[in-house]
Simulated scan of single mutants.
Amino acid sequence: MADVDLRKLRYFLAVAEQLHFGRAAEQLYIAQPVLSRQIRALEDELGVQLFVRDRRSTVLTPAGEQLLADAGPLLAGAQALRRRVLRAARGADTLTVGFMPGLIVTAPVQAMANRHPELTLELVRTTWDDQTTAIHDGRVDVSFVRLPIDAQGLSVRPLCTEPRVVVVSAEHRLAGKQTIDVADLADEHLLQDPELVSEWRDVATELRIGRPDVPVFHSVEEKLEHVAAGRGIIFVPLSVMAFYTRPDIAYLKVPDIAPNQVSLAWGADRHSPLIEEFADLAADLAPPVARAGR
């Protein structure tokens, strides 16, 4: 069988995500007939049908579903390979560090810069959506992440924990309180994955509270807009609160919610002395009152 063309895989992913050849063609900036020919060519190369298509809909076949599951990591790996090769061509003179909102990483970054004046340290802000993707696709060498994450293919080093608070609208019935129990929130609409807040999930299950569909948000700012409008609540690490103060929301302490775990993560296949050194610095300089395991 011929080698699979990565460009055709990108075309396939666009159609699989849109389930519409016209919209996928617009996204790719190519003509729809060209896209259709490329997908047919990919099907011929693989010897399978990837889509069932009629005038009203486009759906993935079982083979298409499997390719969708496998193509994303393959393309990310190819992109990461290209970035690492280019980085190697420049020499070991750059370390790119990712970090999640609310985390201050100045201390280990500055300590690393002091040890290696010739090293260029770059910072990339990540989100819940891409905090591990940024590692896999090579955008960052190492990243401060908030658990839970899919740790497959990663080396993960615990750093510290920090309390979490709940965010409600300023008009919410609980907004005047400073501290509440998680049971007080069991019938609220949680604007994030319940698996991220297991205690809330457990209480909601016990009380047989329904779980409305969770909207897809890509930033803290988006979530806070919905909270302020009274459409639901979210839980955030305590440090995030300091960065997002506004009069139309309120932060409440919830002592019976488990703290958030902050860790450092990098590719398990990366055996870099610089990464190892940075990991040691990050662990040594983690907040003393909240270090992991203490």
Rank of each mutant, 00 (worst) to 15 (best):
I39S: 00
I39M: 01
I39G: 00
I39D: 00
I39F: 00
I39Y: 00
R40F: 08
R40Q: 13
R40K: 15
R40S: 13
R40L: 14
A41Q: 15
L42W: 09
L42P: 04
L42N: 06
E43I: 09
E43K: 08
E43R: 07
D44I: 10
D44A: 15
D44L: 14
E45M: 04
E45F: 00
L46H: 04
L46C: 07
G47L: 01
G47S: 02
V48R: 03
V48T: 03
Q49P: 01
Q49A: 11
L50I: 11
L50M: 12
L50S: 10
V52Q: 13
V52T: 13
V52L: 15
R53C: 12
R53D: 12
R53Y: 07
D54A: 03
D54M: 01
D54T: 01
R55L: 12
R55Q: 12
R55A: 14
R55Y: 07
R55E: 13
R56H: 10
R56M: 11
R56P: 00
R56W: 08
S57C: 06
S57R: 15
S57A: 14
S57F: 05
T58L: 06
T58M: 00
T58V: 14
V59Y: 07
V59L: 12
V59F: 10
V59G: 01
V59I: 14
L60V: 11
L60F: 08
L60I: 10
T61A: 08
T61Q: 06
T61C: 07
P62L: 03
P62T: 01
P62I: 02
A63R: 06
A63M: 03
A63N: 09
A63Q: 09
A63W: 01
A63K: 04
G64L: 04
G64E: 02
E65A: 09
E65F: 03
E65W: 05
E65R: 13
E65M: 08
Q66G: 04
Q66E: 13
Q66F: 02
L67G: 11
L67K: 05
L67H: 06
L67A: 11
L68V: 02
A69T: 10
A69Y: 10
A69I: 10
A69F: 12
A69H: 13
D70Y: 06
D70R: 14
D70V: 03
A71Q: 05
A71E: 03
A71S: 10
G72N: 08
G72W: 11
G72S: 09
G72H: 13
G72A: 11
G72Q: 12
P73S: 09
P73V: 05
L74H: 13
L74F: 09
L74Y: 11
L75V: 15
L75T: 09
L75F: 12
A76L: 11
A76M: 12
A76T: 09
G77W: 04
G77H: 05
G77Y: 02
G77N: 09
G77S: 10
G77I: 07
A78T: 04
Q79F: 03
Q79T: 14
Q79V: 12
Q79C: 07
